[in-house]
Simulated scan of single mutants.
Amino acid sequence: MIVYKEIAELNKRFPLLNEEKILLGTDGSVTNILEILFEGDCKVETINQKIVDNTNYREVILKVNNIPLVYAISKTPFKNIEEENLREEIKRDLLSADIPIGKIIRKHNLETRREIKFIGIEKVDERLKTLLKTNYAQLPKRTYNIIYKNKILMEITEVFCIRGKLK
């Protein structure tokens, strides 16, 4: 996938804010970008979390200054983390604290890369509108993998809701 071309095509059908283009296309930390844009600490509100077959599934809202900005679902197959101590620490961070994934990666000083799989527009149902405190019917969405030591550490899907919330 050539990310800038995908975003350019999407922008023809659904005009995007420059900040949305950056969030859709970044191969870095979304947490960091949100903190810069909204000038505050990024917090996680966990909506749902469970472990099935040694894979953590987590549904969250990312907020800065108590403003809901991103709906995210992550899938973390613990078997792909070979180092037992690291696996247990990441598992503990995901389960016991509302820590953004970008901060977990930074905390453990992991050298990772992001591989974008999908960029598009999400139709927003009433549940998502309520969680994100928005009236928009469609929002930018992407799915990507975080790769660590050539294995998928996490698969993440994000729906961005920054429209109307930037100063």
Rank of each mutant, 00 (worst) to 15 (best):
L62A: 05
D53S: 14
K43Y: 07
E20M: 00
C42D: 01
N32H: 14
L34Q: 05
A72R: 09
G25M: 08
R13G: 02
D41C: 00
E35H: 04
T31E: 03
K43W: 02
V70G: 06
E39G: 04
G40S: 07
K63W: 05
K50Q: 15
F38V: 04
N56P: 00
L62H: 12
Q49I: 07
E45G: 00
E39R: 14
F38P: 00
N56T: 09
N85C: 04
I33S: 00
F38R: 01
E83I: 04
D27T: 14
N66M: 10
L37Q: 03
T31K: 08
N48R: 12
I61H: 02
K12E: 13
F78W: 11
E19V: 00
A72G: 15
K79G: 02
K75F: 03
L23G: 00
P68Q: 11
P68V: 11
D41L: 00
R87K: 15
P68C: 13
K75M: 04
E35T: 01
N32D: 15
L69D: 02
D53I: 05
T76Q: 05
L86P: 11
T76N: 14
I81D: 04
N48L: 06
K50R: 15
V60A: 06
L69T: 01
L34T: 02
E82A: 07
T31R: 09
L17A: 15
L23K: 02
T26A: 02
E39V: 04
G25F: 13
L23V: 01
E84T: 10
T26M: 08
N54C: 04
K63Q: 11
E59H: 12
V30S: 03
I61K: 02
L86Y: 15
E35Q: 11
I33H: 05
F38M: 08
V52D: 12
I33D: 00
P68K: 11
I33Q: 01
L37I: 07
L62T: 08
E45Q: 12
K43D: 10
S74N: 13
E59M: 05
G40N: 07
N48H: 12
V44Y: 03
E59F: 10
N32L: 13
F14L: 10
V70Y: 13
I47G: 08
I22M: 07
I61P: 02
N54D: 15
L24G: 08
I22V: 15
P68I: 10
V70K: 08
V30C: 01
I81M: 03
D53A: 14
N65R: 12
V52A: 06
C42E: 03
L62F: 14
G40V: 04
G25P: 13
E39I: 03
K50L: 13
E39D: 15
E35M: 06
L86T: 13
V30P: 01
T55A: 10
N66K: 15
N66G: 06
S29V: 00
C42Y: 08
S74L: 15
P68F: 13
N56C: 11
E84D: 11
I22D: 06
G25H: 13
E20R: 01
P68S: 13
D53R: 06
T76E: 05
L69H: 04
I36S: 10
N48S: 12
N85Y: 11
C42G: 03
N56V: 14
N54R: 05
V70W: 14
I47K: 12
L16A: 04
E45S: 07
E45W: 03
